[in-house]
């Protein structure tokens, strides 16, 4: 009985969290379209979320693309289909692995830092101070970060897709004996515009979710260092799970018809 009660309580907490996060998301969207806009904060967010994430995105993509090429080659050999490496690497990177891995890296790198920064501001009364200085915390802190992620993460995903394909290309041509010209031609011929659009659209959704979760858990942080720690942990968990769930839904939406 106590077990059921505990389970019920956990479920209720989860539902109310989802409800509050949804309200937070709509509030953020409504602040996005109403002035004042803080351009400098937005620029700063573009730099930290986008530019400074390039190394980690690049490394993630190149190794994944390379590993994918090896796997498809050895797996394909079982039914003499080694030749499909370029096509499968391209479709695997662009449709699935590019957006998902970039999304998860953004959750690790950006969500956590946003949550820790905003939670610390909350704990040290900096958020209260913003309010007393006639500055809306949602407009000054949340909107620039979420908007930046919404715009910049698709670009990161695009770059990740390209670097991932290049990783596959290097492994394919250097180690698996593919002809470079044919490899590139096969990749280019096989990919469709819809693949690329879906990749970028996923990037936008994942970026939005990642930044939003960082801001939401930061703004609702508990007191003290423990509160900051908990906010950071929860934000990354929530962002990662939401990204994977959204990926499933988007894949179903784009490709199951």
């Amino acid at each position: 009985m106590t077990f059921l009660a505990a389970l019920g309580r956990a479920l209720l907490t989860l539902l109310s969290q989802i409800g509050r996060a949804t309200i937070f998301a709509f509030e953020t969207l409504s602040h996005m379209v109403r002035p004042p806009f803080y351009v400098k904060e937005f620029g700063h967010a573009v730099l930290t979320i986008g530019y400074f994430s390039l190394p980690v995105v690049g490394l993630t993509a190149v190794f994944t693309g390379g590993a994918l090429a090896l796997q498809i080659y050895s797996g394909g050999a079982r039914f003499s289909a080694e030749a499909v490496v370029p096509q499968i690497v391209a479709i695997g990177m662009v449709r699935e692995l590019g957006p998902v891995l970039v999304g998860l890296m953004i959750a690790a790198r950006v969500t956590s830092s946003i949550a820790a920064e905003i939670a610390t501001m909350k704990v040290t009364e900096q958020i209260d101070a913003l309010v007393t200085l006639s500055t809306h915390p949602a407009k000054y802190l949340t909107v620039p970060r979420v908007l930046a992620a919404l715009i910049v993460v698709p670009a990161l995903v695009g770059i990740g897709d390209i670097i991932g394909i290049l990783g596959g290309f290097v492994v394919g041509t250097e180690q698996l004996g593919f002809n470079p010209g044919t490899y590139l031609k096969n990749t280019a011929d096989f990919l469709e515009a819809a693949d690329i659009w879906s990749s970028l659209a996923k990037g936008a959704v994942f970026g939005f979710l990642a930044a939003l979760m960082g801001c939401y858990f930061g703004m609702n942080s508990g007191r003290g260092a423990q509160g900051v720690g908990r906010a950071t942990k929860s934000s990354v968990e929530a962002a990662a799970v939401l990204i994977l769930a959204a990926n499933f839904l988007l894949t179903a939406l784009f490709f199951s018809a």
Binding site: M121, T124, E125, D128, A129, L130
Partner: peptide, 10 residues
Amino acid sequence: GMLFQGAALF
């Protein structure tokens, strides 16, 4: 105008 107990500087 408000001075916070912990200063609350950005």
